[in-house]
Amino acid sequence: MKAVVTVVGKDRVGIIARVSALFCENNVNILDISQTIMQDIFTMIMLVELSTASVSKLNSELAKIAEEMNLSIHLQNEEVFSSMHRI
């Protein structure tokens, strides 16, 4: 299953490192990354392939990172976005 991960929050050292380390540990392949910083607000969008990883486990791990680093992180099935924006 492909998923879109969004990370939004105040920029600081190690955001990409923490998130991608978690994906590496869980055998999640990163297919695409786009990232910008707008007025100090870090915005990253990743497209990932989950393969064997469990969505609920990833979500709880991401929630921990989000809390520790004061970020807003979401992981959603890619189909949600296709359904919302493509006919």
Binding site: V4, T6, V8, D32, S34, T36, T43, I45, L47, S72, H74, Q76, E78, V80, F81, S82, M84, H85, R86
Partner: peptide
């Protein structure tokens, strides 16, 4: 890939 604006828009719908 779906463009970033659309992704943020959807996330806002879910989150806020």
């Amino acid at each position: 890939m779906i463009n970033p604006f659309e992704i943020i828009e959807t996330i806002n719908m879910i989150d806020k």
